[in-house]
């Protein structure tokens, strides 16, 4: 069996009676950027939160099917904290903790047992550079992170996620609250990170999907309609519903 970085096999999830995903099967290749698009309530965000098990504390959460990360079942054979260390997540709204810039980035490594100041210094610098934020904040690392602009905060969140050295990064509409310039910077960072990380981008912005992703998956009411090379999805999709969505006729 050919396997990708993440194998999603026949996954259905529900919150109580409400079904969110139905029989989803696809795989995510190593170091690709996969865009997940679809209208509201299509199950995009549910998919992301299922991949790092952030869903499971919700009341009534049920899952069937299986998800494998490098061949390991993430719901059975791995501790949830080590899974989340390997699969990082960027949220829709920038959500720095009420700590300094430095402490925000050092938070993850510290939780995983890194305490040495020199190690942490190095991590902070490296990740801020990767997120294109270093030059803007290098002189004020002790500043409250909440005092940064929205775009800076979101790049800080990316740096913070990189600091725990994940293999996969999930983005949940990461630019929904940002202006075009900040959005461009976040996208620039994503493309730059491609050489190292597998990235999954949930977005409402089809143009953004077209700009940054290698492949695109289209979801509708909890079902995977189509997944293919991005260019093909946006030019000659197989399914008329996909075409309707990407051409802006609904959604």
């Amino acid at each position: 069996m050919k396997t990708g970085k993440l194998d999603i096999h026949n996954v259905s999830i529900a919150y109580g009676e409400k079904k969110a995903l139905q029989g989803i099967t696809f795989e995510i290749q190593d170091k690709e950027i996969l865009a997940v698009i679809g209208p509201a309530n299509s199950g995009k965000t549910s998919l992301l939160r299922t991949l790092n098990r952030l869903n499971e504390n919700k009341s009534g959460f049920k899952i069937s099917g299986s998800i494998h990360l490098d061949g390991v079942d993430i719901y059975k054979d791995i501790a949830v904290s080590s899974l989340r260390k390997r699969i990082g997540m960027i949220f829709a709204l920038p959500n720095p903790l009420p700590l300094s810039i430095y402490d925000n980035i050092a938070y993850g490594p510290r939780m995983h047992g890194k305490r040495k100041k020199s190690d942490l210094d190095q991590i902070v610098e490296k990740t801020l550079k990767s997120a294109f934020l270093w030059d803007e904040v290098k002189d004020r690392l002790n500043l409250q992170a909440l005092k940064l602009s929205g775009g800076q905060q979101q790049r800080l969140c990316i740096a913070r996620t990189l600091a725990v050295e994940p293999e996969v990064i999930l983005y949940d509409e990461p630019c929904s609250g940002l202006d075009p310039i900040s959005t461009a910077k976040v996208e620039e960072a994503m493309v730059e990170l491609k050489s190292v990380y597998t990235q999954i981008l949930v977005t409402n912005n089809t143009k953004q999907a077209a700009r940054v992703s290698d492949r695109t998956a289209f979801f509708l009411t909890g079902e995977l309609i189509e997944i293919d090379v991005t260019e093909k999805i946006f030019t000659v999709p197989n399914d008329p519903r996909t075409e309707g969505y990407v051409s802006g006729r609904f959604g």
């Binding site: 790092n52 952030l54 904290s81 080590s82 899974l83 989340r84 260390k85 390997r86 990082g88 997540m89 949220f91 709204l93 959500n95 903790l97 009420p98 938070y107 993850g108 939780m111 995983h112 969140c157 913070r160 996620t161 725990v164």
Partner: peptide, 22 residues
């Protein structure tokens, strides 16, 4: 805010670490 908890968990912190540090 719930988002503080989610961020901490998403970074791989355990539940108790999240409570203790956030």
């Amino acid at each position: 805010p719930q988002s503080f908890r989610e961020v901490s968990l998403a970074l791989g912190a355990t539940r108790w670490q999240t409570i203790r540090h956030v």
